[in-house]
């Protein structure tokens, strides 16, 4: 009986200790998320107070998804295509590149500290400051154009700057995003490689396994679940990208680097925008990220889970 009383008291103490955190989460986290979902079904023009919100049903979604608003749906289409290009680049460039560098680092015997410092640089520097540096590099009179000019490659120069031309702006932004996202993926792969028991390789060698067999039978099964995490992480970065674009191009030129989150920001905070439409766009993007993450888990997750056990 005493034991049960003490256990109850202990539980109560636990609940009391976590109560402030749970309270904060309910007020700040859960409430805002639920409020945002509700708002996506209302029309709340920019500048109006919340009690002026009018129920709009699915109109907000129809406006940008089904062409209800000709102008907005055009901008949304362009933004989603750009997000998809960034997502594609994040998967096909970042993952192989991070894996290759991780393998090389794992095998390196000299200069490992220096390389670690270099690859961690994007993580420890102020992102906004770095975007301004990239902006300077891409400027019409920036280092990239000057370098090309010094090699006599005048025809390669982007006259309006690398983020100032419609055809080069998105690839230039993708390079910046890839550069910023690489360290996170690299760290995960590097940690995965270091977790491989070296005895497994020795045993495989004794059994006569070649390098390909060691890679596919030992390394890959261990790295596969990590790859799923890396894919989901990179998809998330690609579909939620905002700060690089806002600092460097604001979606320009002529919408060449427009992405959904920039459009959401403009809809929410600029004149003629609508907070309801902004929230609807945000939740559409969340659903897309969620579906793509589920697909990634389906493709790699379950099997790898069973294999790795």
């Amino acid at each position: 009986m005493n034991y049960r009383k003490a256990a109850r008291r202990e539980a109560l103490a636990g609940y009391l200790l976590i109560a402030p955190a749970v309270g904060l989460f309910i007020v700040i986290g859960l409430f805002t998320v639920l409020f945002s979902i509700v708002l996506s079904f209302f029309s709340l023009p920019q500048g109006q107070l919340i009690w002026n919100a009018k129920f709009a049903g699915l109109d907000n979604f129809k406006d940008f998804l089904l062409g209800g608003n000709y102008i907005l749906s055009g901008f949304f289409r362009q933004a989603i295509v750009n997000n998809m290009w960034i997502a594609f680049a994040m998967v096909v460039i970042v993952i192989p590149l991070a894996l290759i560098i991780a393998v090389l680092l794992e095998k390196a015997t000299r200069g490992v500290r220096l390389f670690r410092t270099i690859y961690l640089l994007p993580m420890v520097t102020s992102s906004v400051a770095i975007y301004y540096v990239w902006q300077g590099l891409y400027d019409p009179t920036g280092s990239i154009n000057q370098l090309l000019a010094s090699f006599g490659l005048d025809s390669w120069i982007a006259k309006n700057g690398w983020i100032g031309e419609i055809h080069t702006a998105l690839p230039a932004i993708i390079i910046t995003i890839v550069w910023g996202a690489l360290p996170h993926s690299l760290i995960l792969f590097f940690a995965g490689l270091q977790a491989v028991d070296t005895h497994l390789y020795e045993a495989a060698e004794i059994d006569g396994a070649n390098a390909w067999q060691k890679l596919t039978r030992i390394t890959w099964p261990i790295l596969k679940p990590i790859t799923v995490i890396v894919i989901i992480m990179n998809l998330n970065v690609a579909l939620q990208v905002f700060d690089q674009i806002w600092v460097m191009t604001k979606g320009g030129p002529a919408g060449a680097t427009q992405v959904v989150n920039v459009l959401v920001y403009q809809q929410a905070f600029f004149q003629d925008g609508d907070m309801g439409v902004a929230n609807a766009m945000g939740w559409t993007m969340f659903m897309l990220t969620f579906i793509l993450s589920l697909l990634s888990l389906k493709l790699f997750g379950d099997k790898s889970g069973r294999e790795s056990h």
């Binding site: 309006n160 700057g161 100032g164 604001k250 320009g252 030129p253």
Partner: peptide
């Protein structure tokens, strides 16, 4: 001015 299209 080259780059004017990207200027704020």
């Amino acid at each position: 001015l080259p780059g004017a299209a990207s200027l704020d």
